[in-house]
Design a protein around this nucleic acid. Structure first.
Length: 816
RNA sequence: GCCGGGGUGGCGAAACUGGCAAACGCAAGGGACUUAAAAUCCCUUGGGCCUCGGCCCUUGGGGGUUCGAUUCCCCCCCCCGGCACCA
């Protein structure tokens, strides 16, 4: 049996519990929010506290963000790293319905478990500023945010479609609709129109778009910016009026240049003019079609069958360009919520219109032609994508290049007041109403005399009553409306009997402003403390998943913009820097309960310790891309920590300092400092760890226990393995936390050896190497290489055509 | 269909700005220590030849630019994620 001195081997559990306790005691992770002079707000996306506990994906995300925060801390910043829980939403409701546990009981239990796990993984969280969105002390201010938007005129009510299950008689969220059917009873879902609350995010579309390119405001992952740009979906086009018996029909098109090819029109089935356009003989057919369209749920209408169908209304409109009378159809491939809900159909140059025209034998006219073609040739596929297109069959605009034709036609339409150039966005206003229970009630009271009245700020929060029958039932009424004692209230304006809004708000509203609240959780008389907002915001670094690239991140930006315009915030963009992390798979496959390959962090932490687990997660692949979790992989980082531990123990025993350090070690040491620093800065954690491993290997190879180097190694390890580093730091004689240490600096001149091996290539193939002093001149290197027999073998008797020398890197002889 | 991200040894992966492909780690094989095993330490490890000095091939496939391509350009195939009748 091997002799074990208890103090001489690494026991993760003991080390980790010791330092977690000490951090809590000393307030190590709680910066002074009111006096910090180098504040750094390090934010990560707060989790939904599920009953299953922290997922390894959460741990991966949080660890990567925590590593970054700890690194910044070591660089001398005061880092605020808060954590909270996004606890409202349909998740809890569904879980509650399945298990019979009320969300109000479930959530605190889940949170307690999450908090335990988050502490166990060693995050640098400031627990004084924890928040939970379901806490009335939080959602009071979520309601306040709603009122700010309401008073700013950015909140309004309108009818909008929801998924409706005719069997359960309830509203369904999109995720509860599976293949067009209700997930619970399988009945086909239909759409219904309800009055709902919206935020006018579309008013901000242009600013939201423009700021994406503004480096002074936003430094974001390119993929995230692109996703936002696509989501906002700007298109430049024109609105054109087509006169009809029922009044002008306004269409939106991005290709006004093709107007001469518009041979019919198509309106969305819900279009308000349909009624008046419909000829008596077609009434039955039109009504039947409209009914059928309404019966389709929101999802399947969009993605359902690709086959285009529709019916003729019996009405006509006049093409303002050709003067021709063209038939007006309705079809559900035209959507009411985009453009004007009506299109001019140009079957000659639009795939969908073409399919429709072919099916119903409507005329097809070609109005664009490529070089060498005439308008008489048949339709060519993708005609719009070819270069050098010119107009044909387009009256006096014929023969104009397409681009110029477009401008001329828009000018002409504008002059005749028949249309004008406009910009449209794909982005819709944000519907925040949810006909559900588990969310913050929207703070509005309806009064017969006064109409909708906002709840006065002094009456906030409008508490969500803890009721048992929150389940959707056959009544078809929002669950909250069934509770008279809550539902019926006096009107705040006139005092007469009135009733509350029964919709709750979207969970995305909770999460759209949480970063503001963290700083000020101890104040219950204001949403956020102004001085702290000034000091700490905008967020210095935000790390999260790209699944929130559009909704959460866009809503947060929008809200900050509104509050900025209201004079409440000094910034428009809340997240100066955003980076998306990758996703983790297990053994090459997506994790899922049914496959039984879900990684449960607790089990791994119990077996290996939090530090090893953190190291492994950061090492298994590039942080921004994610990677493949394999059980065998944990041994590597653990062995590495064991060896560092041994080195520290040896260092402890040797009192001698200032021993001579070999030149190659000094180089390695400086290279490592550089590589680790740059790796951390760019979130290339896997290569930063590899660099630390190389340094350790180099030290061990020559049995070097130089204290300066070992101390630097420990400091650089601290972001990844914080408890471990603290313990080592203490053993190396420190009395303060390793996070009080200074991040190691390197000497650039010492990152390169003074003598360099330069590969010598002949015609691009490496045939030999020569060792030369760093920075040697080309002549010297060439001379050295020409003496090399291995090189001469390939060059002797050949004509030397060219010599390429890249300083300190490579020499290439081109011979023929 | 559109938009992102990928495809490199047995595996996870690395490679600055076009300059020695495979760093670091896992797994595997051999050896040392041990009565034995675990742990630890040392060596080998992309493939194929080989006269042991080397030689040839290799980054999804095909072309191109270049003295030189994992990296740049064109075409194609496959995987992952998102959006999806957006006029």
């Amino acid at each position: 049996m091997t002799e074990h001195h208890p103090d001489d081997s690494y026991h993760p559990d003991a080390v980790e519990s010791k330092w977690q306790a000490r951090w809590a005691e000393r307030g190590t992770n709680a910066p002074d929010l009111d006096h910090a002079d180098r504040p750094f707000y390090n934010l990560m996306m707060f989790p939904y506290p599920s009953a299953e506990g922290l997922h390894v994906g959460n741990v991966f995300a949080f660890t990567g963000a925590d590593v970054f925060g700890r690194f910044k801390r070591l660089q001398g910043y005061q880092v605020f790293e808060p954590m909270g829980y996004d606890a409202f939403g349909i998740h809890s409701e569904n879980f509650a319905i399945k298990t019979g546990v009320h969300p109000a009981d479930l959530i605190p239990r889940n949170i307690a478990n999450f908090r335990r796990q988050l502490k166990r993984m060693g995050g640098m969280f400031d627990w004084r500023h924890e928040l939970t969105t379901t806490d009335p002390a939080y959602y009071k201010w979520t309601q306040w945010v709603f009122l700010q938007l309401y008073h700013a005129g950015k909140a309004y009510k309108k009818k909008a479609a929801v998924n409706w299950c005719p069997n359960d008689k309830t509203v369904l969220a999109n995720e509860q609709v599976i293949n067009g059917a209700c997930e619970r009873c399988g009945t086909l879902v239909e759409q219904r129109f309800l009055e709902q609350w919206f935020f006018k995010i579309t008013e901000y579309a242009e600013r939201l778009l423009a700021n994406l390119d503004d480096r002074t405001k936003m430094d974001w992952s390119a993929s995230t910016s692109i996703a936002q740009r696509n989501w906002i979906g700007r298109s430049d086009g024109a609105e054109i009026d087509f006169p009809s018996g029922a009044g002008p029909i306004r269409v939106f098109t991005t290709r006004p240049d093709t107007i001469f090819g518009a041979t019919f029109m198509v309106l969305a089935p819900e279009h308000p003019l349909v009624e008046r356009l419909t000829a008596p003989v077609e009434r039955n057919a039109v009504e039947a079609y409209r009914k059928a369209a309404a019966a389709k749920d929101l999802i399947s209408r969009k993605v359902g069958e690709k086959e285009k169908n529709g019916v003729w209304t019996g009405g006509y409109a006049r093409n303002p360009a050709t003067g021709a009378e063209i038939p007006v159809w309705i079809a559900d491939y035209v959507l009411m919520e985009y453009g004007t809900g009506a299109i001019m159909a140009v079957p000659g140059h639009d795939e969908r219109d073409f399919a429709f025209a072919t099916r119903y034998r409507l005329p097809i006219i070609r109005v664009l032609a490529g070089a060498g073609e005439t308008g008489a040739t048949p339709l060519r596929e993708a005609a719009l994508e070819t270069d050098e297109l010119r107009l044909v069959n387009s009256g006096r605009f014929s023969e104009l290049p397409a681009e110029q034709g477009l401008r001329s036609i828009v000018d002409w339409l504008e002059q005749g007041q028949q249309g004008n150039g406009v910009v449209r966005y794909r982005l819709h206003d944000w519907c925040i109403s949810r006909q559900r229970y588990w969310g913050p009630p929207i703070p509005i009271i309806y009064c017969e005399g006064c109409g909708p009245v906002p709840v006065p700020e002094k009456d906030l929060p409008v508490r969500l009553p803890i009721i048992e029958d929150f389940r959707p039932d056959d009544s078809g009424i929002s669950p909250l409306a069934r509770h008279q004692e809550w539902y019926v209230v006096p009107c705040p304006r006139c005092g007469k009997q009135a009733h509350r809004e029964t919709d709750v708000s979207d969970t995305f509203l909770d999460s759209a402003w949480y970063y503001l609240r963290y700083l000020s959780t101890e104040f219950d008389d204001r949403p956020f403390e102004a001085d702290r907002v000034k000091r700490w915001l905008p967020v210095a670094s935000y790390i999260g998943g790209n699944e929130h690239a559009v909704l959460h991140l866009l809503y947060s930006r929008f809200l900050a913009m509104v509050l900025h315009d209201q004079g409440v915030l000094h910034f428009e963009e809340p997240f100066r820097k955003f980076r998306a992390h990758g996703t983790i798979v297990k053994d090459g496959a997506k994790m899922s309960k049914s496959k039984g390959n879900v990684v449960i962090p607790d089990e791994y932490i119990a077996r290996w310790g939090a530090d090893t687990f953190r190291m492994y997660l950061m090492f298994l692949g590039p942080y921004t891309e994610g990677g493949d979790f394999r059980d065998e992989g944990l041994a590597g980082p653990r062995r590495f920590l064991d060896k560092v531990w041994d080195l520290v123990v040896q260092c402890e025993k040797r009192t001698l300092v200032g021993s001579e350090v070999h030149q190659s070690i000094v180089i390695k040491w400086n290279q490592t400092k550089k590589r680790v620093t740059e790796g951390l800065e760019s979130l290339a954690y896997n290569t930063a760890i590899a660099a630390l491993m190389e340094l350790l290997n180099a030290l061990r190879a020559v049995n070097c226990t130089e204290r300066r180097i070992v101390k630097d190694l420990v400091v650089m390890l601290a972001p990844f393995a914080p408890h471990f580093a603290e313990e080592c730091w203490e053993r190396l004689g420190a009395r303060t936390s390793v996070f009080e240490a200074r991040w190691p600096a390197w000497d650039e001149a010492l990152t390169v050896e003074s003598e360099i091996e330069v590969p010598v290539q002949i015609n691009g193939k490496t045939r030999s190497r020569v060792t030369v002093p760093r920075g040697a001149l080309e002549e010297a290197v060439v001379a050295a290489a020409r003496l090399d027999p291995a090189v001469r073998k390939f060059t002797d008797g050949k004509e030397l055509r060219k010599v390429i020398y890249v300083k300190d890197r490579l020499l290439n002889f081109v011979v023929g």
